[in-house]
Amino acid sequence: MKKKISALKNKYESTIVWLIGFLVIWEIGAYIVEGTKRSPENVLPHIYQIVGSVFRTELVNGSQTLFQIVLSNMGITLFRALIGYLIGAAAGYLLAMLMNLFRPLEKMIFPYLMLIQMIPILGMAPIVLAVTKDIDKSRIIIAAILTFYPVATNTLAGLKAVGPQRVELMHSLAAGQIEIYKKLLIPSSLPYVFTGLKISAPMAITASILVDTLQGGGGLGCILSQSLKHATSIYIFWQIVLFSAVIGIASYYGISLIERIVNPAMKKRGSV
């Protein structure tokens, strides 16, 4: 037990060392850029400058500080990403269930599900906007499509990986279809569903930011483009880089946390 703890500490220690190493390289780069470029904050500002800009109190556009601008736009983007994520996840889960129930449907859809993963959906974002003519709908749709297929394929894989003997056990007990789903298929496929959810969470956020950049309707991507065109402070861009990284990573670990709450066996296994 003691050994386990020290090993765990080691794992975090080395991650922290790596993180420090990364920051050091960034700072060295920033010093070089500072010495050689005319506007270094456009290329690679110091980290303290980025963090400092978060706490700057002067108002930029008359009513909001830099951080408030980022925060309010982040709300717009993340809310749409979340709606798309939930819709996509629900649709993916449902489709996987239906495909598992009706073999012909599986045969019909499965090749296309594989095809979606080869198709650059993000590249299709502009046309979705053109078809829907609504930035909010486009955000939701793209986030939903990107969430949809990892959840659908992983759920289906989970339902298939259940193991023939476990199903036979249910048959030997004369369990009906509903009982087999309730007692066996749904709980046993749960870890797979969460794998899909974990993969797609950062993707949904990426998608939502990308769609923002296509039109000036607000959102992180929108102020990101403005910032890059120097319409506003460049630090808005750097704050977005910082926060999108944090949110992307946090979304992954957030889903992991939910998984542990939903699936206590998992939690116990994790701690053993």
Binding site: P202, I209, L210, G221, I240, V241, S244, A245, I249, S251
Partner: peptide, 8 residues
Amino acid sequence: FSAVPIIA
């Protein structure tokens, strides 16, 4: 890093 959006 893989969780950082490409857009950024």
